[in-house]
Design a protein around this nucleic acid. Structure first.
Ligand code: FES
Ligand code: FES
Lengths: 150, 150
DNA sequence: CAAAATCCTACCATTATAGCAGGATTTTGT
DNA sequence: ACAAAATCCTGCTATAATGGTAGGATTTTG
């Protein structure tokens, strides 16, 4: 599994806030109830999103969380990398680079590098807005005969 | 991490045998020495490859392992799925289908489905031969302006 | 000043990962 | 016949990651 519940719930939270905040702060309890997720677990995930400046928080009464920008200005790849640490398909590849002593002679490395690029290109090309409005064409694509990646 | 050492080593083994067998059976110890991997761990991984009919084994003196077909007839996606169990990027998606009670109303599901397809299309389009001969163009690709997935 | 809400620190159970050990079995070459 | 070479099988183990939980401190509003 490449994306754990942490990353998945993080994205769910972002989508929930995008849909339910009208410039207002959305309380954690509301999100947890709507998405049927653990209050406490969400709290720890949201903390990461705040440190990564994906969300803005406000304490106290009428507080909660809201987006720091427009949905169209969020890139899914960045949201997932923030929470998951990396989206690299193998340990030989870390964010922006290769870390493997066998890299110089490894014949499978180009495969992993290629896979990493395909994933990054896909997720990097989709925005939070695409998910909110349900842009199925962009997410599910239609067939591309040139590179057969979609 | 989407592909653990199990899948990575499995692929390494396949490539090693493809390169070093000339129709002969290749002994485990030789593979482990060449690839600098644990004898015993490889043994357990190779057992999976045999059950999945990726390799043929022969016991006793002059025994070892060899490919069950031509390198060009192995699809990387299948090799990795066999050893990893699944390549699905999230738990909501299992081999050939969706398993999530929220699937019907989930707005992020199309994203995961799309990602799954992109991965499957990439890995499914590359063969063991591509890796053995170092077909960098196919693995690393050149830019596709239509779907931007490579 | 109380209620509503986030923030912070620490803990914990379960599962997956990455192996290791030892002996049983099969086959070949002499 | 028999020893050497090799796979096969069963079971074990240490470490890390996952998926949470608990409890209280702090901040803000009405
Ligand atoms: S084993 Fe790490 S790059 Fe190939
Ligand atoms: S949470 Fe499983 S499909 Fe969206």
């Amino acid at each position: 599994m490449m994306v754990s519940t942490k990353g998945r719930y993080a994205l769910t939270v972002m989508v929930d806030i995008a849909k339910n905040s009208n410039g207002e702060y959305v309380p954690l309890a509301d999100i947890a109830r709507r998405e049927n997720l653990s209050n406490k677990y969400l709290e720890s995930i949201i903390a990461i999103l705040i440190k990564g400046e994906m969300l803005i928080s406000l304490r106290g009464k009428n507080g909660g969380y809201k987006l720091s920008r427009e949905p169209k200005d969020y890139n899914i790849s960045k949201i997932l990398k923030l929470t998951e640490g990396t989206l690299a398909p193998v340990n030989c590849i870390i964010q922006d680079g290769v870390t493997c002593d066998k890299a110089a002679t490894c014949s499978t490395l180009p495969l992993w590098t290629g896979l990493d690029r395909v994933i990054e290109n896909y997720l990097g090309g989709i925005t939070l807005e695409d998910i909110v409005i349900g842009n199925r064409k962009k997410m599910l694509g239609d067939y591309c005969d040139k590179c057969s990646a979609l």
